[in-house]
Design a protein around this nucleic acid. Structure first.
Lengths: 342, 342
DNA sequence: AAGAGCGTCGTAAACGTTTACGACAACACA
DNA sequence: TGTGTTGTCGTAAACGTTTACGACGCTCTT
């Protein structure tokens, strides 16, 4: 069932059929109508391999995610909303979004190399950006259009969007400070992911901005998991002078934090203030309700898609947005987990 | 950088280069060595589109998942382990796994049609199988190799693996019955997903097997979400004669169940016994610890992959496993959420 | 010594599509 | 009438790969 069959069936040439289907202007309106009609009738759909081979494009964009939960910052529910936004924009351009999973036992750079060399996709989203991320260099060198969710230290001229972890740190510290907290612990990501550093830096700045001293013992690097939060609480409670509040880089950690606090006889939100990160389905059901930050993930997905398309020659004119290098805003959602100290 | 460049560089024909790279026998060992060496030196990788066009195969398998959280039975963390197992098997065959997301606002059948017609993949996994699932008919008609995670009512001759929800229901009811519970509520999936019905049927059978009466009021169909569990508890507590135990089809529901119980002054695991479903990272951190069922998801992924490959002519001889239609076992993990009634 | 068998390799035709190019008719204009 | 313009369409060459087929030289057999 090739374009040749369709052309024979219509008694016209395959060139005309192709032009009709691809919406080119040099084809009679009546002819175009007949072509579409016949295509629908006999169920013809163009072969993607043939198309890709000819024009060197696949009409697909890949979203690379790590399946290693230790380095993946966000809980798994994070991406589903983002995908929705991306797909909404892509639908207008007949682009397909496919998710490419980096196996947990494979080096992310190796995985990316394979993805790129197989030419599965015309462009890529990469996430969990590390401080110095060799994947970015590789993509730039190979001239593959891509958008980074998260920024690296190098900055550079590629598009990226990063969540406003600086805003998270400042808003959290200010809020706790205004409520009378003087010793505030912070649990950040322990892997080489860049936001672990960004969050720590912002924490120190925010302390200074609120005239609070910085104590290195209160800055914990941990796995972004329930167990990470659990262990971080342990370390903070062992200090000679305990903090009265904890700020977390990740809401999944909060589950472990709550649990450990309960185990040692402390009530989260009374004996210890906690501010998590994202307002996710899980965090919303913590008791007492977690103070955290809402992120418009669907809109973020839309913006990510726009930013990527703006760097792709074939779509650039329809998305004249320039180079996207943006901090994505977060919005404080007050809960009941961070009252003034006892 | 095509195979032609590589052949020119070696002063041999492109046919020989292709045969050497593809491991055919009719090529001199020394020649093959030189080909591989030169390919690595100049960084040649075969173009997938050309290859696909010629041999009508893409060397990729798609895993279709719904992003609609209402009909998606499993929490999002469910699939990550499964993917790992699938990828481990696929790696031996140079097959790539790609995840294809059905947009939340698109009909799953429409989405599948598009995926199939674009010939992105050589085979498919589909999940969230409905009672009568038109996707299965479509794939059979188009003769696309596929594996279903979940079984439909029709059964048929296609491969499927379903979780042992029958075992979950029987083990839960028996355990609760042995501990003295007489009125046991069950919350099952409310959508058209088949296991919602399977779970309900097994519930009735298990009641009969333990000489317990069946009360329709105790069988609730709900969304498989936190809110679904929250609302289900509300309905059960309004009954003139309350149940003393609840069995859930999904552990995410348990979060809502715990929360609502707390709100009305009841303590889960003391005033109300709860048995959830899966032993997931989230459920493990509920307090009191949830009695639930462990599933070897990585091994499940491996078996899914084997079952799919067994139906594909190109791989069948390496996976002589016959038609896979299996119930995947679950293992009870005792917690502290289901003591005897007060 | 002639033929068969084998190992190795080159040739060329596909796979299905897009697109540059030219052909042709119809029409307008001088 | 001759020339240029426009609209519409057919032709054929690519894109990169795999593979059927045949060619060639060598060894072994009879």
């Amino acid at each position: 069932m090739s374009i040749r069959d369709l052309a024979r069936h219509l008694n016209i040439s395959i060139g005309t059929v192709s032009r009709a289907l691809n919406g080119r202007s040099d084809v009679n309106a009546e002819t175009r109508r007949r072509v579409f009609e016949a295509a629908a009738a006999i169920g013809y759909v163009p072969n993607q391999s043939g198309r890709s081979l000819r024009q060197g494009t696949t009409n697909a964009i890949g979203f690379v995610v790590e399946t290693n939960s230790e380095t993946s910052l966000h809980g798994d529910t994070f991406f589903t909303s983002v995908y929705g936004g991306v797909q909404q924009v892509f639908a207008q351009h007949h682009l397909d979004l496919i998710v490419l999973l980096c196996p947990f036992d494979q080096d992310p750079l190796e995985h990316l190399r394979r993805v790129v060399s197989r030419r599965f996709v015309d462009g890529l989203f990469i996430s969990a950006i590390q401080r110095h991320d060799p994947r970015i260099d590789h993509l730039i060198e190979r001239e593959i259009p891509f958008m980074a969710l998260g920024r690296s230290l190098s900055g550079g001229t590629h598009p990226w969007i990063d969540l406003d972890f600086d805003g998270v740190a400042h808003a959290s510290i200010r809020r706790l400070s205004e409520r009378g907290h003087r010793r505030i612990g912070l649990v950040t990501a322990g892997s080489e992911i860049n936001l672990g550093y960004v969050f720590a830096d912002s924490y120190r700045e925010a302390l200074a901005a609120n005239d609070l001293p910085y104590d290195p013992d209160l800055l914990i690097r941990a796995e972004t998991s329930e167990m990470g939060g659990y262990n971080a609480v342990d370390r903070l409670l062992k200090l000679p002078e305990r903090p009265t509040a904890i700020v977390l880089v990740n809401e999944i950690m909060a589950i472990g934090v709550y649990r450990r606090l309960h185990e040692v006889g402390l009530t989260p939100g009374r004996d210890m203030a906690v501010i998590g990160f994202r307002d996710s389905p899980q965090s919303r059901f913590l008791s007492p309700r977690l103070t955290c930050f809402r992120i418009e993930l669907f809109e973020l997905g839309r913006r990510l898609a726009e930013g990527l398309l703006a760097t792709m020659p074939a779509y650039r004119d329809q998305h004249p947005v320039g180079l996207v290098q943006e901090i994505w805003p977060v919005h404080l959602v007050p809960g009941e987990s961070d009252p003034p100290p006892p």
